[in-house]
Simulated assay, not measured.
Amino acid sequence: MNHELPDAAAREREPTEANVRALVETFYRRVDDDPLLGPIFARALAGRWDEHLATMTTFWSSLVLGSKQYRGNVQEAHRPIDDVEPRHFARWLSLFLSTVESRYEPAAAVQFMEPALRIAQSLQLSKFGWDYQIPVEQQELLAALKRQRTGGAPEPRFPERPDAEPFPAKFIGKSADEQ
């Protein structure tokens, strides 16, 4: 699958139904192509990709546009997936956040990034137990995004990362290149 991302100069200033759909489609093409995540999603979504894309578009539209159309239970939807490890969360977040960052201006990107990090944290604690330690980098990024959203900083303070290092930097687990 092709997973081309738009030029940084063409980033969206605000989410709309159309660009949320495009974000979801681009992100899940990247997931499907990913050597770490692709097999897990292929098993979980066999024959249901179109349905999943529609559900995820509704989900993200509900969160960022306030459409309130999503009626599912995030925890229950993920419960049947048994072979997920911390490195899968790190990779999902890296792909999602980099896709959002490439498609939206910072103020709009926060509308996706903050809920994604909160949901990931909830799923991680549910999956690995309440004593599971959320990676520090993940916690710091969430705190930075919250400060930006609440006016504590003019723009999100994303972690520094060397060129070509996945976003966000240094989440636990191996990158797809290290597999």
Rank of each mutant, 00 (worst) to 15 (best):
L5W: 01
L5F: 00
P6I: 02
P6D: 01
R11T: 04
R13S: 12
R13T: 05
P15T: 04
E17L: 15
V20Y: 10
A22C: 03
L23H: 04
T26M: 03
Y28C: 10
R29Q: 01
R30F: 02
D32E: 07
D33V: 02
D34T: 00
D34H: 14
P35K: 10
P35T: 06
L36V: 15
G38A: 08
P39R: 12
A42K: 10
A44Y: 12
L45S: 07
G47E: 03
G47V: 06
H52P: 02
H52Q: 12
A54R: 04
A54H: 01
T55P: 05
M56D: 02
T57L: 05
T57Y: 06
S62V: 06
L63Y: 01
S67E: 13
G72T: 06
A77W: 12
H78E: 14
R79P: 15
P80D: 01
I81S: 05
D83R: 15
R87W: 04
H88A: 13
A90I: 05
R91C: 04
L93I: 07
L93A: 13
L93G: 07
S98L: 00
T99N: 05
S102R: 06
I119L: 15
I119G: 03
I119C: 11
L123T: 15
Q124W: 02
S126N: 14
Y132I: 14
Y132H: 15
Y132C: 12
P135H: 04
P135F: 07
Q138Y: 00
Q138V: 01
A143M: 08
A143E: 07
L145S: 12
K146M: 00
T150Y: 06
G151P: 02
E155P: 01
F158E: 10
R161G: 14
P168G: 09
K170N: 13
G173K: 15
G173C: 11
K174I: 15
S175Y: 02
E178H: 09
Q179A: 14
